[in-house]
Amino acid sequence: MATQAHTEHPGGKPQFPPFNKETFASQLIWLAVFFIALYVIIARLAIPRIGGIVEARRDRVEGDLAEANNLKEQSSAAMAAYEKSLADARGRAQALANETREKLNAEADKARRSLEAELNAKLAQAEQTIAGTKTAAMANVRSIAVDTASAIVERLTGAAPAASAVEGAVADALKR
């Protein structure tokens, strides 16, 4: 293949184009020109621009992530604060309820006690009155019994018995 004829060569000798030295100078010069031009374009324009885009994107993504983290922390802090205040309020409500209950209990106790004392006093007074009345009644009963006994004896016997004897008999009878 490599030795195939190629008609354009002026020397008439068939030559494989990549090894044709006559074209080397031109190729090298244009390679130098275009390679340097490309190098300048890439180093001065393309790399700063694409590098800038890539960096800006990375910064933006990192910034957004940081902001998202920040917001997340804020929201969890707000959540914690909310839960704390809820717990506080619950605690306060419980304390208030306890306090109120104890106060009401104490008041009720006091009222009951004073009422009991009053009733006890009235009861004692009533018992005293009963006892007095009973003593008086008992005294009346004795005198009535003595009178009745002496009247009965007088009617039966016709003679009035000695008062002391009747009293002693009545006392004996009452003791039975």
């Binding site: 031109s26 244009w30 275009f34 490309l38 890439i42 324009l45």
Partner: peptide, 22 residues
Amino acid sequence: IAFTNSALYMAIVVVGIAALLV
């Protein structure tokens, strides 16, 4: 020294790269 088809394609290569990258 001549502007050859090789040089033309080098130019096309450079222009193509510049169009893509820049």
